[in-house]
Design a protein around this nucleic acid. Structure first.
Length: 616
RNA sequence: GGUCCCAUAGUUCAACUGGAUAGAAUGUCAGAUUUCGGCUCUGAAGGUUGGGGGUUCGAAUCCUCCUGGGAUCACCA
């Protein structure tokens, strides 16, 4: 399908080169939608051509406009204001565009690309439940995957489950010591919450232990012999800072947890069995949450399988003098990109996060031969990924140029509300349940859905609630830090998911009456009202919205598009009568327009992971 | 302290990557509609784009200095 903007660009290049015997670069031609308050559909900025033309902007605009109307069949008129040339596009062109879009079931699916893309997201630890930060991560990863797919890529959605290490040992130890054999089944708790409870239990027991220790001679001794990084501190400040070191030095619980980790690494059967059991609980809990959020993965990687990977690569890097070694410790100097030396293998010979990342990158390459790999990880890890990518570049990994860290900003809460005393963040499941219960209340209050079964109602509640939540998070540019206001996220008016869903529901309701069989309708050329033209222009921009969102890994562009389309439809619905249209042609045209808007709305919202209800 | 990121109506976010008079939503105020409320609709007010300087036809956007906030600077993940 032709794209009017690129047509105008190409025509402009031709005309300018012809008029001023210049060699204009296509990229220099700025074509954008004309401002609402001006006449015209598209605007060309003519300032860049004034130099080569040697004329004033107004003159250039006039010359260009006249030539373009002459040369291009779809351009029906123009006007010039200052250095801006506004072009009008003929109605019959827009009608044919609508016809094309209506007939194209795959509209918005861009040209197939050769590359496969791996998108890594979620990647939780298996010692506690998912929270608000994970939700942003998961929604982003899911949406970016969908958008890349629509843009023509083959996409593999993966996560790396951080299922080993000291954190899970804490939960395990706490359960072993204080659990009295209770299980998710016996307590009726969701598995991840159950294990999380023991993670918290460990933390509180450890704090108690630490507090008791503070008044012992050992604590004074530790303070006297403190390392230089603590030198400036007084005793109180020292105690505050020392907690982590205490875990590794004096703590009995810390020693037990570490012993458990060592036993795990030595594949002690008892520890492994406990670990398997507890991880199983957590993972089944995660599965439920993923299901609620409507996401799934192509493949899961487990850190327990991959944490030893990367050794071959490291040996290779050492052989090529890319990495350096001091006893067992392996590292790399990253000064050229302004980073500190990065340790890849610790001096005790054990692996690091970095060595794992190297190994998993290679493993994914072996699995999928993907030249692009997107890591959806918080922006606090920007420096880490810069380092990892630099290492892979120096090692000349074949996928090194396609690595991208989609670094999203933290989710803040307004003034500490909903933040519990321990600084625990908002739990993912609690949040979803809260949004759902609000949506349920709203829906039953309006009482419009009495005809439906309870099951159908619950399905609608689910779609609306998740629509609200997902849209609220995804409409913000990922790189930005955002404020999550729980009340606003439940809002259904204004720039929200349900507002857009409502446009779709309206369309479906009209169609049930106006064209119940979905018959193919014909109509002959009515003249377009401004809203109608706006709708078609918006529809026609959808493929380029996808391309742009895919290039920037930015779902917020798709969200903004859906909002604009929904809003314009609401206005259309308000201004134009469909059932009582002035003629049969107009009626048929508007039915086709509404049908097409509905179709594209559903497609667009699907890319941000939102399902459309048929009624609400 | 070094490096990186951010700062836009009261608030939450936009602004097609340098284009026209910086836009939405929400909140506030006024009005319409309605069976009260809600929903819906119309309108108004709300901005020196943190501050100064520079680059040019043109700056929220690029450069520079300053102010304020955040992240990071582990042989943690």
């Amino acid at each position: 399908m032709s794209n009017i903007i690129s047509e105008i660009q190409a025509a402009t290049v031709e005309v300018v080169n012809d008029l001023y015997s210049a060699k204009l670069d296509l990229a220099k031609v700025n074509v954008s939608a004309t401002r609402k308050d001006m006449e015209g559909d598209y605007t060309i900025v003519v300032f860049p051509f004034t130099k080569m033309a040697g004329k004033k902007p107004e003159e250039v605009g006039e010359e260009l406009g006249a030539k373009l109307v002459e040369a291009h069949p779809h351009i029906s008129g123009y006007n010039v204001i200052k250095g801006f040339l506004n072009l009008s596009v003929a109605d019959d062109y827009w009608l044919s565009v609508l016809g094309d879009i209506a007939a194209d079931a795959d509209f918005g699916k861009n040209e197939k690309k050769e590359d496969t893309v791996v998108v890594e997201f979620s990647s939780p630890n298996t010692n506690k439940p998912l929270h608000l930060g994970h939700i942003r991560n998961i929604l982003l990863g899911w949406s970016v995957s969908k958008i890349l797919q629509a843009d023509g890529y083959e996409v593999k959605k993966v996560q790396i489950v951080n299922d080993r290490g000291i954190a899970i040992c804490r939960s395990m130890l706490a359960w072993q010591k204080f659990g009295n054999g209770e299980t998710p089944e016996s307590t009726g708790m969701k598995g991840d919450h159950f294990v999380g409870k023991y993670y918290v239990k460990f933390a509180s027991e450890f704090s108690k232990e630490y507090e008791a220790w503070q008044s012992t001679p050992a604590a004074d001794e530790a303070f006297e012999n403190r390392e230089k990084k603590y030198q400036a501190l007084d005793k109180t400040a020292f105690i505050k800072e020392y907690k982590n070191d205490y875990f590794n030095t004096h703590s009995a619980l810390g020693a037990e947890a570490k012993a458990m980790l060592i036993a795990w690494e030595a594949e002690d059967p008892e520890v492994r069995a406990l670990w398997k059991k507890m991880n199983g609980w957590v993972l089944s809990g995660f599965d439920q949450t993923y299901k609620t959020l409507g996401v799934d993965f192509t493949k899961l990687y487990f850190e327990s399988d991959t944490y030893l990977l990367g050794k071959d690569m490291i040996a290779d890097g050492l052989a090529k003098n890319i990495l350096t070694q001091e006893d067992k410790r392996v590292m790399i100097d990253l000064e050229n990109i302004g980073l500190a030396t990065k340790t890849i293998i610790k001096s005790d010979g054990t692996s690091t996060y970095t060595s794992q990342d190297l190994g998993t990158a290679q493993l994914r390459w072996d699995d999928f031969a993907a030249k692009k790999m997107i890591y959806v990880v918080g922006d606090e890890q920007i420096a880490h990924f810069q380092g990892v990518f630099e290492i892979l570049k120096r090692m000349k990994a074949p996928y090194a140029d396609g690595l991208f860290h989609l670094a999203y900003g933290m989710v803040d809460l307004p003034t500490g509300r909903m933040k519990s005393r321990e600084g625990t963040v908002v739990d993912a499941d609690d949040l979803v349940n809260e949004v759902k219960s609000l949506a349920r209340t709203n829906l039953t209050e309006r009482g419009e859905l009495e005809v439906l079964t309870a099951e159908e109602k619950e399905d609608i509640v689910h779609r609306i609630a998740l629509g609200a939540l997902k849209y609220y998070i995804l409409k913000v540019n990922p790189t930005r830090r955002m404020v999550f206001n729980p009340e606003e996220s439940l809002d259904m008016q204004g720039d929200t998911g349900p507002y857009i869903q409502n446009a779709y529901v309206r369309i479906q309701s009209i169609l049930r009456k106006a064209n119940p069989d979905g018959a193919a309708l014909t109509y002959s050329y009515p003249s377009l009202a401004p809203v109608e033209k706006n709708l078609i222009m918006l529809l026609s921009s959808y493929p380029s919205v996808i391309a742009s969102a895919a290039a920037k890994y930015d779902p917020s562009e798709v969200a903004a598009f859906c909002y604009a389309l929904g809003k314009t439809f609401h206005k259309f619905y308000h201004d134009m009568s469909i059932m009582k249209a002035e003629s049969e042609d107009a009626k048929n045209f508007r039915i086709v327009l509404a049908t097409t808007v509905g179709k594209v709305l559903a497609k667009g919202m699907d890319l941000v992971g939102i399902e459309m209800p048929e009624r609400m």
